[in-house]
Write a protein that binds this DNA or RNA. Structure first.
Lengths: 247, 247
DNA sequence: GAGTGGTCTAGACCACGCT
DNA sequence: GCGTGGTCTAGACCACTCC
């Protein structure tokens, strides 16, 4: 009948601790693919949490593709550890670089402050924004793989520092500037790249590139970043996990 | 202290009813983009549900990109109604056809029963399966857009009926055969298509197609369908909504 | 301080899988 | 019948926003 006994939030929720702990254990094969996790009531004892908290943690792991719950049986560990190459959810290139064994580097090619968005970014909804404009080339194993155009909008971004090679934009936004990224939309198409980008990526005759356009938003729904990425078609690979949504 | 008063599950959960009702209202602009939904406590009264149930419904809408919750303020309606062209989550082509104003048709080109998976599908983990093999061509506005190769595995699929043009595989699996689809993995790459497919899709010189390989699973984690889709690069468009996951 | 969402607890009952 | 997950309720307290 009473709430929890502590008065101080330990910076991170009990639910998140459980998620991270279970994710770690799955990742390190303490729970093997095909195994059943301990039952919800066992986890209640293990973590000293209510069943509701346990269930919310398991829901999160389910959504991320770590486990599948089967009524009457338990929670099975799935084999979807492997993450996407360029991007599945929202994760920075640097984070991907770390969590997979990727030998990737980023070169900053251009970095200026603009008074307005570039014309060809075509955004009727948001305009007349100052922005920090970036052009970067991503190399994987020394091969040019992605050409990134970025606009960091101001507001909400102010005093964006000079970016160096291999710096992570997300890390700066979240950790140094206190701007928590919340969600993003992405659109993937195939288009002809212009001469400059085609040269940089060493595209062939067709000059076709995979184009990923994304809009990144903060928790207060303000738009913070626009990105257009040109991926070399031979090096593009997108892996996704999705759950069925009934209408 | 007591559970709910009813004894009969009305086939669909109260939580899902709330999700569907709110999604409808957002879709039909009863709640406009940028509006705040009624507060959680108001929704408790509106729907006669506990706050926990309301919150779980809102969590689902959040995950799907309908709303963004802001602490201390409320739940804002986002503008991500528009769904992906070929596929965002797991949804059948027919469902997409209905929910968007798409003039699409599907032609069944080949339909046979195989004793084993085709060699080039390369699946070490699952083998020696009988399967129902399908080749279909998807036309959008009369233009060939997608060439689909499908394998429906047996087991779990038994007695798969003869498929006609514009039939939905998912509908047959879920409604007629009682096989509930639960989740899927997808991989998107760009590859050269073979002559036959290139001709059907009327690809240009480069013969490049966007290749989407997916594995579809049931609720009991059994693999039910393998698909390789070749998309015409000019007509391929993938739209995604993703939320930030902290490690 | 009032109102909103965020986290957590404790308990009840239902539906499913197995033996 | 027992154990597992699925749904729902009622209540407590925290953190944040805005007046």
């Amino acid at each position: 009948m009473m709430g929890k006994e502590v008065g101080v939030m330990s910076e991170i929720s009990k639910q998140q601790l459980i998620v991270q702990d279970l994710a770690q254990k799955i990742h390190h094969h303490l729970y093997e693919v095909g195994d059943y996790l301990p039952s919800e009531y066992q986890l209640v004892d293990l973590y000293g949490a209510s069943r509701n908290t346990i269930r919310k943690a398991l829901d999160e792991l389910t959504e991320m593709g770590f486990i599948q719950k089967i009524q009457g049986k338990g929670s099975v560990v799935l084999d979807f550890q492997r993450y996407a190459f360029p991007i599945s959810g929202i994760t920075s290139f640097k984070e991907l670089n770390r969590s997979m064994g990727m030998n990737a580097h980023t070169k900053v090619l251009k970095q200026v402050i603009l008074d307005q968005l570039p014309d060809d970014w075509s955004l009727p909804e948001v305009n007349t924004n100052k922005c920090f404009y970036l052009e970067r080339l991503r190399l994987v194993d020394g091969e040019p793989s992605v050409y990134d155009l970025d606009c960091l909008l101001s507001p909400p971004v102010v005093n964006f520092p000079t970016l160096h090679d291999d710096d992570s934009v997300y890390e700066i936004l979240e950790n140094q500037m206190g701007l928590p990224i919340s969600y993003a939309t992405k659109e993937i198409t195939v288009e002809a790249a212009d001469r400059q980008i085609a040269d940089q990526l060493r595209l062939g005759q067709a000059q076709l590139a995979v184009v990923v356009k994304s809009k990144v938003y903060l928790e207060d729904t303000s738009l913070v970043q626009l990105t257009i990425s040109y991926h070399h078609p031979d090096k593009f690979r997108f892996i996704d996990f999705a759950r069925r949504r009934k209408l």
